[in-house]
Write a protein that binds this DNA or RNA. Structure first.
Length: 1004
DNA sequence: TTGTGGTGT
């Protein structure tokens, strides 16, 4: 599509046309692609005025910059009087027809009658009827009213009923249906956490879990639902409030896997606890931030978090196994016994974690069902009321699963969760909930664009000059493209007013409003054009710089947001009325055979295109301009490739092995190629994580080794975990260095900031050179971290307020072109690893009690950091900042630095010490996990030999010019050439030793 | 002498 060549022959000045011309045919139904009503009504003809009217064609030919026109013209609705020809009508109705044919129950706002679900026959009445009112009492009536207006409200009884009657329910819910906020409440109110009236019921402690692919979504949904339920804001609740004081420990025991007696005790404890704790029914759990307590009943979390919870029981077994030092394959995932319902939201996004959660949840559900049946049978055979001296209580509950999706992938989920019924497998029922969004006009180009960036530029200007106010969102591929377009737009922006004046002067009066020659007609308002406010939006920009996008647009200004697909799912930008879609996005691909990564621009899928278009209809009716033909759209894949099919599988496979699942035979929603899994398993074997049986011997999971068990317990990629464990064998000092290094390498981006302008580029490379360590990038990163810690520790000691301390540290970062935010992320990971290392017996030389340094000045530093935190001046620094400064204090406790108050000389001495440290042992510890990530200098020419490939050291490496004989590196990327990144010098003899070690592992 | 789409434990 975007790349397709297009003949440009007759793009002479007179055939010069904007990308989108023409207008929608009158009265054509314009449908938001995200809004798929069963019976679509054209309810917004007036809205089409945005693009309605004349054959507006804005003539840009006098703008010399805009010469590259491809003869593109009328986009849509060029067919005669057949209504809108855009794909919206056809595709959305076909989605709906399919939904209707499939018998999806459909809920519409205001409809009282509810269609029965497929499997719902002769069900009993909802026992919660009549209880709704009681629950409405404590909540602001306005909130309740707004809940009632949501499309999903009408379906609440039917949803509850469907969940009661089926193991799994699939919910096809559109944007704006309210599914994620309402369904957990419906299920809670219906008693899925235990009936409130029966305080002896231990199932009172059951949870409804709601998983999300993203952290921010988990937090904001939890806050919203808490508000709707009249509960305290989970983000405002401290650990102390959530867990109460001394009685908290008793509460923590009161899961239903323990005896009922304890639960009763806990329940009475609850009666005496403070109200805020008891009211905290809604919480969230994400990495680094757990806002749940004993009274939490609805828990929002990331998929990754629940995945860790699923590993819980396996990990306990693993810990025992490590003690006996034996391989183990009889592991089980946790049964998620505290959850009565698991709601897996945004399943259509198909992230790696979501896919694993779906597969494991299915097997957990079956295990729990079996367990419940066994319990019921034993109850029938044995009428006694006591088991092992304890009172018998209720049967262990089943796990209900609700999968929420926004696309027709729903059918795939329904089949996946098929249920045995009358001798055959019946798919899980699908409930369909209408969304509530505004209509969006859809436009396509008639011909393919040769240069989508140029087409985007022209379309933006056209929209700006011809259309009523409303912000523009442009979906682009990456930072570079965005910054280029931004500078182009800014230079046009300056000329727009002058251009407008010449237009007005040159045009006959009657032409001004487009009444003249049809070929020359254009809509030129007498008003000068508004200003354009061009704002970039991509992940690397950081949250501070992205804030501008969310500010209200100033008067007489049009906001033009240039975004990557971060704006497709992760953030919602208010005020967008026009979307321009390049039809492309960058996708990272991984080769299992070679370990090479590529980042490529690729056509998006139809569902992504619809999702992008939908962004124009959040606040009101809008228009989407796709910079490709309708034909190209139709040729797109239906949905994006699931992550599981394009990423490194090492982590996923190790996690599966750790819960006793064989990756080769796992119940994948989309199974990766057998060869890819096999390659991955061989790598895991080389890492010493698993013990492979002879081929084809067994369907059981490959045995996980004690080493693999330890690796699986760390929140790190297997390769980083292996480095940490290897280092732990060497010495506490090397373990500490490795722990901090893998924290750096696990951070979400590099620590060095790359400016765009050439002048600052020069400064940045100088700053970097001053921080470089001669042995390579690993040691450079590590010594930067340690210098950063020293600076932070100084700030902790001498800054008057935390805010001032942060400013000082920020200033140091800016001076050295280092991302403060990344350092803070590294810090949080480092703190988590510290805790885990301590738990798991990986001794680092800065852990409490493991180092003589602590005696020296630990108490002083500890209290100073404590004071620092207590002295918080109300600056709303986030939790990470606090952890970060606490961590800086702890670093002092490490005794890693000898800096004294205000003594810059001491700082310099520290730095010198860091530079003198060779990190030889650390570099050796990298190798067991990197025997395939080493290269020798090519004797026949430039570059390095890695197998049969010639690779080059990436110019961003400190070793780019030093060219040591043998190197180890973290990754291979294919861009203009094959580059290796994050490189350090090693010696050939170290590598031989490491290879011998791996041979030994594999031979066992 | 180069270039990094987006998530997450």
């Amino acid at each position: 599509m975007g790349k397709k060549k297009h003949r440009q022959a007759d793009a002479g000045p007179d055939s010069y046309k904007p990308v989108f011309a023409g207008s929608k045919s009158n009265g054509g139904a314009s449908i938001n692609p995200d809004l798929r009503l069963i019976a679509q009504e054209s309810d917004h003809d007036a809205a089409s005025a945005s693009t309605n009217g004349d054959d507006s064609s804005c003539d840009f030919r006098r703008k010399s910059h805009l010469t590259a026109i491809n003869g593109l013209h009328t986009a849509r609705n060029s067919s005669n009087g057949q209504g809108a020809q855009g794909w919206t009508n056809e595709d959305s109705s076909s989605v709906l027809k399919a939904a209707a044919q499939a018998g999806f129950a459909n809920f519409k706002a205001g409809s009282s009658g509810l269609s029965p679900t497929k499997n719902a026959s002769g069900a009993s009445a909802n026992p919660m009827k009549g209880k709704w009112k009681a629950l409405e009492r404590n909540v602001d009536t306005r909130i309740l009213e707004s809940r009632k207006e949501l499309p999903i409200w009408a379906g609440r009884d039917a949803i509850v009923k469907a969940v009661r009657e089926n193991d799994t329910v699939i919910l096809l819910g559109e944007t704006g249906s309210g599914k994620t906020t309402q369904i957990p409440q419906f299920l809670y109110e219906a008693g899925f956490c235990g009936a409130a009236s029966n305080s002896n019921d231990r199932s009172q402690n059951l949870l409804i879990g709601v998983t999300q692919p993203r952290r921010v979504a988990a937090i904001s949904l939890a806050r919203r639902v808490a508000q709707e339920m009249g509960c305290p804001d989970p983000q405002s609740l401290s650990h102390a409030v959530l867990h109460g004081s001394a009685k908290g420990s008793m509460w923590r025991k009161s899961t239903f896997t323990n005896g009922g007696a304890e639960t009763d005790g806990a329940a009475s404890a609850a009666a005496h606890a403070g109200p805020s704790k008891d009211d905290a029914l809604v919480g969230y759990s994400i990495r680094f931030d757990d806002r749940t307590g004993p009274s939490t009943r609805i828990k929002f979390m990331t998929d990754g978090f629940v995945l860790r919870e699923m590993m819980g029981r396996g990990l306990q077994t693993l810990a025992q196994m490590i003690e006996t030092n034996a391989g183990c394959r009889n592991l089980q995932p946790s049964l998620l016994s505290r959850y009565s319902v698991l709601i897996i939201d945004e399943a259509h996004e198909r992230t790696l974690d979501t896919d694993l959660v779906l597969g494991l949840a299915k097997s957990i559900q079956r295990d729990r069902k079996r367990r419940r049946l066994e319990w019921l049978q034993s109850k029938n055979n044995d009428a006694s009321t006591e088991v092992n001296g304890k009172a018998r209580d209720e049967a262990p509950p089943e796990l209900k699963i609700v999968v929420m999706s926004a696309t027709l992938d729903a059918q795939k989920f329904a089949d996946f969760f098929g249920q045995q019924s009358a001798g055959k497998i019946a798919p899980a029922p699908i409930l369909y909930v209408q969304g509530r969004q505004h209509a969006v006009d859809i436009c396509h180009t008639v011909d393919s664009c040769e240069d989508w960036a140029d087409a985007a530029l022209r379309t933006i200007l056209q929209v700006h000059l011809e259309n009523p106010p409303g912000d523009v969102l442009v979906f682009m591929t990456g930072q570079e493209e965005i910054e280029k377009l931004r500078s182009q737009l800014e230079s046009y922006g300056k000329e727009l007013k002058a251009w407008h004046e010449t237009k007005l002067e040159g045009a006959p009066a009657e032409d001004v409003n487009g009444a003249g020659n049809p070929n020359k007609r254009r809509r030129i308002s007498k008003q000068p054009p508004d200003d354009m406010l061009v704002l970039p939006m991509y992940a690397a920009l950081g949250s501070d710089a992205s804030m501008a996008v969310f500010q209200p647009t100033p008067p007489r200004t049009r906001k033009i947001v240039l975004a990557t697909n971060i704006a497709e799912t992760s953030v919602t930008i208010p005020g967008i009325k026009y979307v321009i879609d390049s039809g492309l996005s960058k996708v990272k691909k991984y080769s299992h055979a070679t370990g090479v990564e590529i980042l490529e621009s690729e056509p998006i899928s139809r569902s992504s295109a619809m999702q992008r278009a939908g962004r124009a209809g959040r606040d009101g009716p809008g228009t989407c301009f796709h910079l490709y033909t309708k034909h190209a759209f139709e040729g797109l894949a239906e949905s994006p490739t699931p992550d599981i099919l394009k990423v490194d599988l090492a982590n996923a496979c190790l996690q599966l092995c750790a819960v006793g699942r064989n990756p080769m035979s796992f119940d994948w929603l989309d199974a990766p190629a057998g060869d890819d899994i096999a390659q991955t398993m061989v790598r895991l074997m080389q890492l010493g994580a698993i013990i492979l049986e002879k081929a084809g011997e067994s369907q059981e999971a490959p045995a996980i080794s004690p080493l693999g068990a330890k690796m699986a317990m760390l929140p790190l990629s297997p390769s980083f975990a292996r480095v940490l464990l290897a280092a732990g064998q060497v010495s506490p000092t090397v373990a500490r260095q490795a722990r901090d290094l893998v924290a750096i390498l696990s951070a979400d981006r590099g620590m060095f900031f790359e400016p765009n302008d050439s002048e600052r580029k020069e400064q940045a490379s100088l700053a970097r050179a001053s921080l470089a360590h001669r042995s390579g990038d690993h040691a450079t990163f590590l010594s930067v971290l340690y210098q950063f810690i020293a600076i932070s520790e100084q700030a902790v000691k001498f800054a008057k307020t935390p805010k001032q301390g942060r400013e000082e540290v920020r200033a140091w970062c800016e001076k050295h072109f280092i991302h403060y935010r990344t350092m803070s992320n590294i810090f949080a990971i480092r703190q988590q690893l510290k805790r885990i290392c301590k738990q798991r017996g990986i001794v680092c030389d800065d852990e409490d009690g493991s180092s003589l340094h602590r005696k020296r000045d630990g108490s002083t530093a500890g209290s100073s950091s404590q004071d620092f935190n207590n002295d918080d001046d109300g600056d709303n620094g986030d939790g990470q900042d606090k952890a970060f400064f606490a961590g800086a204090g702890a670093a002092t406790a490490d005794g890693m630095f000898v800096s004294r108050p205000g003594q810059q000389a001491a700082m310099r001495a520290n730095w010198q010490t860091l530079q003198d440290e060779s990190y030889e042992q650390l570099r050796k510890a990298l190798l067991p996990a990197r025997t395939h990530q080493c290269a020798y200098r090519n004797p026949e020419g430039p570059g390095y030999k890695r197998g049969s490939d010639i690779v080059k050291i990436h110019p961003s490496s400190v070793l780019a010019h030093r060219q040591p004989d043998v190197i180890v590196f973290e990754e291979v990327v294919l861009t203009s050439q094959l580059f290796v990144r994050c490189v350090s010098a090693i010696e050939a003899s170290w590598l031989s030793e490491a290879i011998a070690g791996v041979r030994q592992i594999v031979a066992v």
